[in-house]
């Protein structure tokens, strides 16, 4: 690794695509609706964020999930499913010309999504699932691993080393809050520093970090008003990317209704990030 040459471990240049590159000087904005509820919402949010990020000279990656596989309740909506979801993501990638990130929950999904998306995300609860990591690594795509809410930053570095042994050095590690008693999370900003020890790109997940898991009577609740101050803190500490979920009408969202950002709030936060950086 050479920080002077802005290279990541394995001599990875941090390129997600030819146009979008990870860098501490200009963190990548990874944002979109939590669930790809329907085509309209995905394109509405994606178009809005792309335009805003272009105006602010911030690199942008569209994020959305096609399957929420670990909902608190068995009765909660899970999303459009892998087939429809990947189809929409593919369309959005082509029409908006933006890189795509989505999360996977099985080896089969990892291989399938690897044909379409630019970043494969391993969910926090699955961050130590060996077979899933092997499959994600084999796609050759950027693998983004969320830190388990109970996991140590040291474990995340070991997981990254494991992925490198699997032949894929294109790794990003994500802080998304640590367990803080029951139904609560706290952001340990030391993790942004610790997880960067080996030089890997570190992303701050601003909207999941403010979750109150399972605190909403059969669903997760959250502290949306905390997103903005935590983003400011993360940018101040230094990160390669900011992850946040945005929805046209969060109160009516089918998942993470208490933590997704209104588009207007996302706009304010993006402007603030640009102001801090530039």
């Amino acid at each position: 690794m050479s920080l002077n040459k802005n290279l990541f471990p394995g001599n990875w240049d941090g390129n997600i695509t030819h146009e979008i590159r990870l860098s501490r000087k200009k963190p990548v904005i990874m944002a979109g609706p939590c669930m790809f509820e329907n085509r309209e919402i995905g394109f509405q949010v994606g178009s809005f964020l792309k335009k805003k990020c272009e105006q602010l000279n911030l690199p942008f990656v569209f994020k959305s999930s096609y399957d929420k596989a670990n909902r608190t309740s068995a009765n909660s909506v899970r999303g459009p499913g892998v087939k429809q979801g990947l189809e929409w993501l593919k369309e959005l990638r082509q029409e908006l010309n933006v890189p795509i990130l989505t999360d996977v929950h099985s080896t089969e999904q990892a291989l399938e999504a690897g044909n379409i998306v630019d970043i494969i995300q391993i969910p926090a609860f699955l961050c130590k699932q060996r077979e899933l990591l092997v499959a994600a690594a084999s796609t050759g795509k950027v693998v983004q691993i969320k830190k388990g809410q109970w996991a140590t930053p040291e474990e995340m570095l070991e997981i990254a080393r494991f992925l490198e042994k699997c032949g894929n050095s294109k790794i990003t590690l994500v802080e998304r809050g640590s367990c803080f008693g029951y139904n609560n999370l706290v952001v340990d900003f030391r993790n942004l520093v610790e997880m960067h020890k080996d030089g890997h790109a570190v992303i701050f997940d601003a909207t999941h970090s403010v979750q109150l898991p399972g605190a909403g009577c059969g669903k997760s609740s959250g502290l949306r008003h905390m997103v903005h101050p935590l983003v400011r803190a993360a940018v101040a500490v230094g990160v390669d990317g900011i992850f946040m979920e945005v929805h046209p009408n969060p109160e009516k969202a089918l998942s993470d209704a208490d933590t997704q950002l209104h588009m207007q709030t996302a706009e304010i936060i993006l402007e603030d990030i640009a102001q801090i950086l530039f």
Binding site: T72, F125, G148
Partner: peptide
């Protein structure tokens, strides 16, 4: 994973699910 469950169920007398996976529908 579900795939491993299918395999294990052919031979094991019981299935053991680790805590990290306890929310995976």
């Amino acid at each position: 994973s579900p795939k491993e469950i299918e395999l294990a169920a052919k031979y094991a007398h019981f299935i053991y699910i680790p805590g990290e996976l306890c929310r995976q529908s």
